[in-house]
Every structure is written in structure tokens, then in C-alpha cells.
Amino acid sequence: MPTTRITGMDVERMTSEPVEPRRDIRHLRVTEVESLDCERLAEHFPELTTLSLSGDLGLLVHASGLNRPASLRQLWITDLFGMSASDALLPEHVPALELSYLGSIPHEYAVAMRSRWRPQVAYGTYVDITAARTSEWIAENRDNPLRHWDGREQISRTCFRKAVAQYKKARAALIAALSDGSREDRPARLHEIGREYGEAFNLLDRRTVFIETVEREELFAALDVMVGDAERALGVRLESAADMLAAGVNAVRDW
């Protein structure tokens, strides 16, 4: 049976309508979750055997509702929060569970899930729980576009901290350059900020090779986030600013 792929917004719309439960859907993948009521999800899709939920610091509400589909065999939850220890899945409620992969989730929920499911490993249940995040981590990294690097296999904790520091340095330099009101030398200044950003990551990557295709794309995507932050901070529209920064990066980057 094929997997049904929908977004979190689609689920919210579907579950808010008075329609019959979708018992025909057994494999469901929900992406782009911003806020999702798991009780309503379980009520609308009562026969799920495979469920994948992912977001970008999105929230799961009433996450204990994931105990309702007794036929659930596989569960993935990635980069979603709002769950507490009391929301953990219980072996007596989902006895068919054979695989659980949880990554970038609340620390309290991760501890509870490990405690509940560790004894089940001996009976064949595969449990993989990584990147348990504290509330302090969430607060500190909510506006950090490189937060997914924390805990990534080829990126050390020290490298992550240095990368975030370089991003924040470039962001501060961009806002400062745009705040002085001078437009004549703006292209040159943004190009230089891009160069410094590129050179900083050249140095980091020489010390510990970690920038691959995904990381390269994320570093350029971080420039767009940086510009968006500056636009909101200054209340202006910054045409071509990201292109100027990227040009500076491309002039020097080795990655």
C-alpha cells in the first residue's frame, strides 16, 4: 500500500471537517508541521500502521493521542516539540510497534520514550532516539538557521559552536552595514561581508572537513535568513542583498 504524503496544514484542514475517518490510509507521511493535534490525527486515521511526522521546530499537541492507533508498527518524529513525558507511547497501547525513530525532540519526551521502550528491544522493537533538545536549546536556536548541524554525524560540537558564531558575526555586520543609511558603498560592503563569511567557513572546513553538498546549500540558505532578519529589524525591503552576499562568498569559498 503506497504512502500518503500531506502537509501539516492539510491534516489540520481535513481533521477540522466533519467527515468519515479515513480507514483506508495505513501509511501516512506528514511534513511541514507547524502545529498538529495528534488526537484529531489519530481519530481521522485510525488504522495507521506507519506514521512519519516532521517539521521545523513545529509543535505536536496532545501527542499522547499517538497511542490510539493500536495497529501502529512504525513511527518517525523529526524536529517537532511540545511533547512531555506523559505523552510517551505505551507498549500496552501500541503493542505492534516494531520501529521508532525520533530525532530533534524534547529532552523530557526522549527520556520517557527510552525508558518505556528499552525493555522492548529484547523482543525485536528497534528504537533510535537522537538529538534530545532542552528548552534552553530551543530558545537559543529558534532563530538559528544552522541549528540542524548540532549533533550531525560529521560535525563536532566545537565546530557547530564556531559555525553559529560566524553566522551571528556576519548577521551583525550586515545589519550594521545597512543601518548607517549610506547606499553608495553598500554593494562593496555586502560583498566584503560575504567574503569574510566564505573565508571563515573555508578555515573551519580545513580544520575539520565537514561541508558537503547539504551543508553548502544550508550555508547559502542562511544568507537568505540573514537578509530576512535584517529586513524585519530595519523595516525595509533589501533587493539583491542576498545576491551581493553570495557573490562575495563565491569569490573565495573552497567548499
Rank of each mutant, 00 (worst) to 15 (best):
L53W: 13
D24T: 04
E192S: 04
Q120V: 04
K168E: 15
R29L: 13
A246V: 06
S52W: 08
Y101M: 00
P69S: 05
T130R: 15
V30P: 08
E108S: 13
G65E: 11
Q154T: 08
A172G: 05
D180W: 01
N141Y: 09
A139I: 01
G65L: 06
N67Y: 09
S100D: 02
E192W: 02
R73C: 05
S86I: 07
A88C: 03
G151Y: 04
V19F: 00
V127E: 10
P2Q: 12
V236Q: 15
L99C: 02
E218F: 00
I105P: 07
E184M: 14
T130L: 10
P119T: 12
N144I: 13
E184Q: 15
R26P: 00
S86P: 04
L99P: 01
D150Q: 14
Y101W: 00
N67I: 05
D56K: 04
V127R: 02
F201M: 02
A110W: 14
I129Q: 05
Q154V: 10
M1A: 12
Y123L: 10
L219K: 08
N250I: 03
S240P: 02
N144E: 12
Q120T: 09
L97S: 04
E192C: 04
V252K: 13
A241L: 06
R142E: 06
M113C: 11
F81W: 12
